[in-house]
Design a protein around this nucleic acid. Structure first.
Lengths: 225, 225
DNA sequence: GTATTAATGATAGTATTACTATTATTTTTG
DNA sequence: CAAAAATAATAGTAATACTATCATTAATAC
């Protein structure tokens, strides 16, 4: 059973954009095509000039939405975390047993992403590839502290907090809930990247999703009293 | 007791440089000052022009050692992994019990770095800061596959392999040795970065090195039969 | 001690990037 | 239909990441 929610949009911190790309056709084109282009050529080879050419607009027009390429990436990553939180909330709603709720949450956070037709101009599969290979670049900058102050990373922190809470429900004495969750989330991305490009840094066993299994197992064993 | 090894240098894959920076005074200056500058201003704000000015040389001269800023970063990271392997080999030599050997290895990989006076032109403390905040950028590129083919990442893979072997000595049936080691290594870096910049993504408990304790515990619990 | 070679310095130049600024045109809305 | 808002067209700038050329200095070989 697939549920379709209309009238549902992911809210992104408005410090990130100059003009909300969700508010116009051009804005949506900027988002959808930048996802395709960054996924294909990488952030390093992506420029507003190329994007403008592709969507038959101009650099100046794109700059009215985002003041830099870094901000556009921030928008995409932020959108992703907002979307992930919506998936988490829906996916774990009405599950009484915190152990099962936690397992569901870890699965959602570590499994490979499938298309979600709720948000038509965003290709979530490609976006998740961008998250895997580019998301750490949004905070590994000299501007982290300032951007953090502006609340740019709250969607991510909220997810870590939310799943950390489930862990504490199961074991209130567990000392490292945030550490465990961020290790899982970042680790899952990295292991998928390694599987594609540096396979000797990971282990991929046929017939299973090793990333999900490894991190699921890790969480369960770690929080045991 | 501190042991000083002279006549000991870290070998770096010679596909990385045009001319070995270890072979001249200028080369060593390039390394030592780039470490200081990148640590302070970040890779993004570091340029060969600024470096040249600082060491009173010229851009052209630096380009005779490294064909790009990315290659210079690769050199630094590679040197670091070579150095880490030497620390691992010495630190775990003559330890019979594989369990104790593994614990020593994990400690070496996750603890904060202290100065090593064996290699005079390299400040290992600053270099480790660079590794924490910039190292993932060396493989999160569109050129990974090609650089991997040239053997640029072997020092890192060797460490993962080496520690993975100890894990298999303890539990030959453990399915994810490489995954576990790379999760620990990358996780330790990230958690230290989070502690400094995004503290809500981690847990730092007074009076202990939470990063070491968390990952030590994780490894032990994970490989249990 | 000089000739030869290698290393470095000085200087200049190029394509690209990441923007900013200005004005013209089109589209939307009251 | 007029006014306002959005977008397009065009041009320009400072900085970056290099490449090229030639002069000078240092190292080494005989």
């Amino acid at each position: 059973m697939e549920v379709h929610l209309s009238n549902f949009t992911i809210q992104v911190n408005d410090n990130i954009y100059l003009k909300n790309p969700d508010s116009s056709d051009l804005g949506k084109k900027i988002i959808s095509h930048s996802i395709m282009m960054i996924e294909q050529d990488g952030l390093e080879n992506f420029t507003f000039r190329k994007l403008a050419k592709r969507i038959k607009s101009t650099e100046a027009s794109i700059y009215r939405y985002f003041e830099s390429k870094h901000k556009l990436l921030l928008y995409l990553i932020s959108w992703y975390w907002g979307w992930m939180e919506y998936k988490l909330v829906f996916g774990t709603a009405n599950i009484e047993d915190p152990q099962i709720r936690l397992e569901k949450a870890i699965k959602i956070l570590t499994e490979t992403i499938e298309e979600d037709r709720t948000f038509s101009h965003v290709n979530e599969v490609k976006l998740s590839q961008i998250v895997i290979s580019e998301s750490s670049k949004v905070y590994l900058t000299k501007d982290v502290d300032e951007e953090n102050r502006k609340g740019i990373f709250t969607p991510y922190k909220q997810i870590v907090e939310r799943v950390g809470q489930i862990i504490l429900e199961i074991n209130p004495n567990y000392k490292y809930p945030h550490m465990l969750v961020s290790t899982v989330v970042e680790g899952a991305h990295l292991q998928r990247y390694f599987a594609d490009h540096l396979p000797r840094l990971t282990n991929n066993i046929d017939g299973e999703d090793s990333v999900v299994n490894f991190y699921m197992d890790m969480v369960i064993k770690n929080i045991q009293k």
